[in-house]
Design a protein around this nucleic acid. Structure first.
Lengths: 251, 251
DNA sequence: TTAATTAGTGTCATAACAACAATATACCGG
DNA sequence: CCGGTATATTGTTGTTATGACACTAATTAA
C-alpha cells in the first residue's frame, strides 16, 4: 500500500531492487530579449558529445528541491532563484545504463546575474536560444524541455512569473516583450499598459532610461502584491503544463 | 550533469546509494453525489493502524504510470481510468525506515465501477468523503491529499475532467452538483444550463429518468469534442494545483 | 524645425457573464 | 383537475473584460 509496505515482519531494504534517482533542471533566462536555456555537453557514454539538461544524482540526505538547487549552483553559480518541480520521468529504458528516474525542475534566472562555469564533468556549458536548441538532446531531454516550455507558457498566463526573468528595474514594454516572446504573438500596446497597471503589481521607481525616443519609465515588481495568488491572463485558452492533459497543465 | 553522470571511466551502479521509489495514487470517486477518496489502513510499522493513500514500489521493468495503474488495479480492480501524475515527494525523512521518494498520481474513477478488495497487505480499504478524512494520515499523506484536491479543483475549471467522475449517462444537474461539490459554491442553474449546452460536449441519449418532478433528461459525454483542448471556466480566479506556485497547474 | 522614434493614454464597441426573474414541462397525490 | 415539486429553459439587465485603434507625449537626429 503506502510507501514501502511489505509482507515481511520487519523492513528489509535490500529486498527490493532500487532505481537511481536524479534531478534535472531546465534553466531559462533572458539574454538580449530572447529566451535562452542552459545546456551542458556530455563528456562520456552514453550520449557522449550530446547536449543535455544539467542534472545529477539525488543524495540520500537532501530533499529533491535541495538537490535541484545544488545542481543549479554547481552549474551556474546562481542562487535564490525561482525553482519549481516540473514532472518526473521514469520510463524504464530512458537511460541505457540502468533504471534512472529523473525528477525534472524548471528554473528562471535573471539575465544580469549569470556567471557560467564549466564543471569538469562536462565538455561545455552554454546558453541556447530556445528556438535554436541542438537536436536531438541526450536521453529524453527533448521531451523534458518541451514540457518545461509548455509549463512556462502556461504559467505566464496566470502568474507573475514573467518578473522572474527581468532585472530589478524594467520598463513595461520590456515586460510586454517577454510575453510576446514566450506566447509567440503580438500583444496590443495600449491594452497591455492598461492591464498591467490595473493589476497593481508595479511600483514606480521614478527612474528613467534615455534612448532614441521618449525616455522609458522604469518600474519595480511589487513582490508583496499578488506574488502568490494574483492572476492576470492574456488569452482565454490554456495549454496545460504537463503531459496529455497535465500538459498541460497545469502548473 | 545530466542523469547519472559520473567521473569514473565506466559506469558503476553500486557507487551511489539509492533511494527507494514508490508510487502513491490518490483515487477519487463520487458516491451519493459526494466526493470520496480511497484510503487503506496500514497493518505494520510505521504508522501501524493509520490510514494512508494506496501505493507501492515501482518495479524495475515498469514505467511510473504503469506502476500507478497496477497499484490502482490491485486496490480497486478498476482499469481504463483517468490517471495523471501529481507531484513527487522526496523529503529525506518522510519515511522513518529509509529514504523513500514517492511519485504521487491522482486518479478519477466512476462511481458505478468500483469493487473494492482488501489486499492482505492492509487491515482495511475504504472510501472516505473528502470532508471527513481521518487525520492525520500516515507519512506526509495529508499533504499529498491536499495537493490532489487542489489540482482537482484547478483542473475542473478548464478541462472536462468532471465527466470522469460521472457514470455513462447523467443529468445536467448532476454535473452541476459535482462542480458545486468541488468548488464549494453554488452555481446558477440557468447559467449552467446555458454554458454546458453551448459548449457542445453533451450528447443527448433520449433517455429519461423519472423522479418526483419532471423527468430528468440524460446525457452522454462526447469524448470526441474537446476532450483534450476544450476549455470552459466557471470562475475567474484560479487556485493552482501544486505547491507554492505550482499550486499548478499547471495544469 | 521637422521627421523619426519610442512611450504612453483614451475611447468605443462588443463579448462574456453573473445575478435574478419568469415560464414551461411533466409527473404525483389527493 | 389542482397544487406541489422538481426539472428544464428562456429572458433581461448591468457590469466587467478586452480587442481594435487612434491619439498624444517626449526625446534625438538630421
Amino acid at each position: 500500500m503506502t510507501d514501502t509496505e511489505e509482507t515481511a515482519e520487519t523492513y528489509d531494504p535490500s529486498r527490493y531492487e532500487r532505481p537511481s534517482v536524479t534531478v534535472d533542471v531546465v534553466i531559462f533566462t533572458l539574454i538580449d530579449r530572447e529566451l535562452h536555456v542552459l545546456l551542458v555537453r556530455r563528456k562520456r557514454w552514453p550520449f557522449e558529445g550530446y547536449w543535455a539538461i544539467p542534472g545529477g544524482f539525488v543524495q540520500m540526505h537532501e530533499s529533491l528541491e535541495d538537490a535541484a538547487r545544488r545542481e543549479l549552483e554547481e552549474e551556474t553559480g546562481v542562487r535564490d532563484i525561482y525553482l519549481e518541480q516540473l514532472y518526473t520521468f521514469g520510463d524504464p529504458d530512458r537511460d541505457p545504463r540502468t533504471r534512472v528516474i529523473s525528477v525534472a525542475y524548471f528554473a528562471l534566472v535573471r539575465a544580469d546575474r549569470q556567471r557560467l562555469r564549466v564543471s569538469d564533468e562536462s565538455l561545455d556549458v552554454r546558453w541556447f536560444p530556445v528556438r535554436a536548441v541542438p537536436s536531438p538532446l541526450a536521453f529524453d531531454h527533448d521531451r523534458i524541455l518541451a514540457m518545461a516550455l509548455a509549463r512556462l507558457r502556461s504559467k505566464l498566463e496566470y502568474t507573475t512569473l514573467a518578473f522572474e526573468l527581468l532585472p530589478e528595474v524594467f520598463s513595461i514594454l520590456e515586460l510586454k516583450h517577454i510575453y510576446e516572446q514566450i506566447f509567440g504573438e503580438k500583444l496590443d500596446k495600449g491594452n497591455f499598459y492598461r492591464k498591467i497597471k490595473d493589476a497593481g503589481v508595479l511600483e514606480e521607481t521614478g527612474l528613467l532610461r534615455e534612448g532614441r525616443g521618449r525616455p522609458t519609465r522604469l518600474y519595480r515588481f511589487r513582490r508583496d502584491r499578488g506574488d502568490g495568488q494574483f492572476v492576470f491572463r492574456w488569452r482565454e485558452a490554456r495549454i496545460d503544463s504537463g503531459e496529455s492533459q497535465e500538459r498541460d497543465l497545469s502548473s
